[in-house]
Design a protein around this nucleic acid. Structure first.
Length: 520
RNA sequence: AGGGGCGUAGCUCAGUGGUAGAGCAGCGGCCUUUUAAGCCGAAGGUCGUGGGUUCGAUCCCCACCGCCCCUACCA
């Protein structure tokens, strides 16, 4: 063991020995507490000193020492527990010689327990008059600075535990995240859904277009992929008669890292038999409004500089969005009929790009030859996606970019698919599920023929077979939990809502990392 | 991957081409209602790493490492 700062580490080890020499256990096994610091602050925040004095109440509280002021034969400290802190007052003439020596040997960061009663100090702060002191655990390394806390973003991510101790805001974000997941479970449980867990290691990485992580199973000697989506397994379950299922868990995509992307991220995916994408759109309006309300207290949520109104989601088709957000000075906006016409989306994109070139706006760069639907998707993403700040349901996606969605009966070039955009981010993606095995096989084969790293190399025959056993008409959707949490906690980066976001491993350690770094 | 920014004491930050500073934390002392406690004293640094320019580099230049932001890929 050698951690910086060495001098403080050694100093604290010495203190721990002295504490043991006093007769205290170095690492005791338990402490029976009666309430948390947070509960006391909540319960007695309004109680006066006189009331506390008249009605002495014994409490036993445990926590981490986050402030410490020693004055000769007495001292104050704050104990932090359940995210809140309460002051303790320790007097030598009350706790006795030995316990007061222990108090002397404590450091910021140590865990202790106290028995005593509540009172208010001269300055009227709710405090515990300590009668007995219990040593619980030593912090051999110091806490971050008490006033500024921990601001170094890298340390906040790498040593999240320090962030959680020092920054109440950080703690709140993760408590809120847990509440969001709870809300979602409640929502689906109440609608007769059952929660399931499907494999995370897939022989064929399907259900989305993304580059997978590759791994290997020794005994079977097979290549496996970390799942990029649970979709195909969940739909097998709807074949199996689980008419309403959901799963909340991790997906893994071997893609870039940004404020909106972490290689592993949490998705809620759910499938509802006998419903279509319009049913889901209606359900989403309820869901988002309800979750926003229950989590933040209002359907209007502050996010950065804007106010997001979840009570009123606009709905636009993808083509409508392109027309609506067409730049005013980029010439005539395309008509819906033009976008629908063969070659029309490409022509519109060319017009847009000519304008983008003049003005330096983002350019719609096509890689290879695109189908009409791909042009539409590309154009939308380039010029409209980031304009969708207020919660928006975008629907009717081109078939070419929606391999798992059912086509619209009146227009096979479009599918019954929607995505929900908020603050320019895609937070949900749902559709009427394609359950025609023949059509599904054709689309998979077309994908494979087209190739690319984000596309499986082989046909998922088992999934096609499952469809052949008959899947009821079903609508399904995925909601990005990390991004939803960002929106409801006013977090600018996905790393602020993931406890341990992926970072490059710390340097200075072992051999291999450096050699690999040079190869990359 | 490309562009921009940052990296100085454990933490939060100043600073300068001439061998480095503050506050907090830590150490010793005084202090029985303090709360960013106070007062006195001492300590703490390969200024991210490696090269180069220079009589001399923490500062200027180059490369590398790490993090952040933007763009690209993606949800």
């Amino acid at each position: 063991m050698q951690f910086e700062p060495r001098d403080q580490f050694e100093q604290r080890q010495k203190k721990l020995e002295q504490i043991q020499a006093l007769g205290y256990e170095a690492y005791p096994r338990e402490f029976r507490w009666t309430e948390t610091a947070a509960a006391l602050v909540e319960q007695y925040g309004q109680t006066t000193g006189a009331e506390l004095e008249a009605n002495k109440r014994e409490v036993r509280v445990a926590g981490r020492i986050v402030s410490y002021r020693l004055m000769g034969k007495a001292g104050f400290a704050h104990l932090q527990g359940s995210g809140k802190r309460i002051q303790i007052y320790v007097r030598k003439d009350v706790v006795g010689e030995k316990a007061f020596q222990l108090f002397h040997l404590l450091d910021l960061g140590d865990s202790i327990g106290v028995r005593g009663h509540l009172f208010r100090t001269k300055t009227n702060e709710l405090s515990i008059w300590v009668e007995e002191l219990f040593f619980l655990s030593k912090a051999l390394l110091p806490l971050p600075e008490k006033w500024h806390g921990l601001t170094d973003v890298e340390l906040r991510y790498r040593q999240r535990y320090l962030d959680l101790i020092a920054n109440e805001k950080a703690r709140e974000v993760f408590v809120t995240r847990a509440r969001i997941v709870q809300e979602l479970r409640r929502f689906f449980d109440a609608r007769g859904y059952i929660e399931v867990e499907t494999p995370m290691m897939h022989p064929i990485a399907g259900g989305a277009t993304a580059r997978p992580f590759t791994t290997h199973h020794n005994t079977l000697d097979i290549t496996l992929y970390l799942r990029i989506a649970p979709e195909l397994y969940l739909k097998r379950l709807t074949v199996g008669g689980f008419d309403r299922v959901y799963e909340i868990n991790r997906n893994f995509r071997n893609e870039g890292i940004s404020t909106q992307h972490n290689p592993e991220f949490t998705m809620l995916e759910f499938y509802e038999a006998y419903s279509n994408y319009r049913d889901l759109m209606d359900m989403n309006e309820q869901l988002f409004a309800l979750v926003a309300k229950n989590i933040t207290g209002s359907t209007t949520v502050k996010y950065g500089e804007t106010e997001l109104d979840f009570s009123n989601m606009q709905r636009l088709t993808m083509r409508e969005a392109i027309v609506k957000y067409w730049p005013a000075d980029a010439g005539e906006a395309p008509a819906l009929a033009e976008l629908a016409r063969p070659g029309g989306a490409q022509e519109a994109t060319n017009r847009y790009n000519a304008w983008a070139k003049r003005t330096g706006a983002p350019y719609a760069a096509a890689k290879g030859t695109l189908a009409d639907g791909e042009w539409t998707g590309l154009l939308f993403e380039t010029m409209a996606e980031d304009k969708l700040v207020q919660p928006t349901i975008l629907y009717d996606f081109p078939t070419e970019i929606s391999p798992l969605s059912k086509q619209k009966p009146e227009d096979p070039s479009l599918t019954e698919r929607f995505e929900i955009y908020v603050a320019g981010m895609e937070v949900a993606n749902g559709f009427s599920e394609l359950n025609d095995p023949g059509e599904q096989e054709r689309r998979f084969l077309a994908q494979i023929a087209q190739g690319g790293e984000e596309v499986p190399k082989q046909l998922d025959v088992d999934y096609i077979r499952a469809l052949c056993h008959g899947m009821p008409p079903t609508a399904g959707e995925g909601i990005g939990i990390d991004r939803l949490t960002m929106l409801l906690t006013d977090s600018a980066s996905i790393r602020d809502v993931i406890l341990f976001p992926l970072l490059r491993p710390e340097a200075g350690g072992e051999s291999s990392s450096t050699t690999e770094a040079h190869g990359a």
